[in-house]
């Protein structure tokens, strides 16, 4: 699933949905992942990068990723 094209993000982790006026704060890791999603990297490419940078098992990352997607969907930040 892709981030909506018009979602604005900043390096500090501020997220703004211009369609709804909703805004959110993300921590540094989440802001980095959002930036990668905006650059049109695939899910696999992003996950590979995370596995290389952090001490996390692939199955744990998959679970966290699914949870992340649910959060983004609930926040109305993903394309349908």
């Amino acid at each position: 699933m892709k981030l909506k094209k018009n979602i604005a993000t900043s390096e500090s982790g501020f997220i703004f949905n211009p369609s709804t006026g909703d805004s959110f704060s993300a921590n540094g890791i989440a802001a980095g992942i959002l930036a990668e999603m905006k650059s049109d990297k695939t899910e696999q490419e992003i996950k590979t990068g995370i596995l290389a940078r952090y001490d996390v098992r692939p199955e744990q990352l998959d679970r966290d990723w699914d949870d992340w997607m649910v959060q983004l969907k609930e926040a109305n930040l993903l394309d349908n």
Partner: peptide
């Protein structure tokens, strides 16, 4: 019921 703060949105 008056807006005391608001943001422009794209819709």
């Amino acid at each position: 019921g008056k807006a005391w703060a608001g943001v422009t949105i794209e819709d």
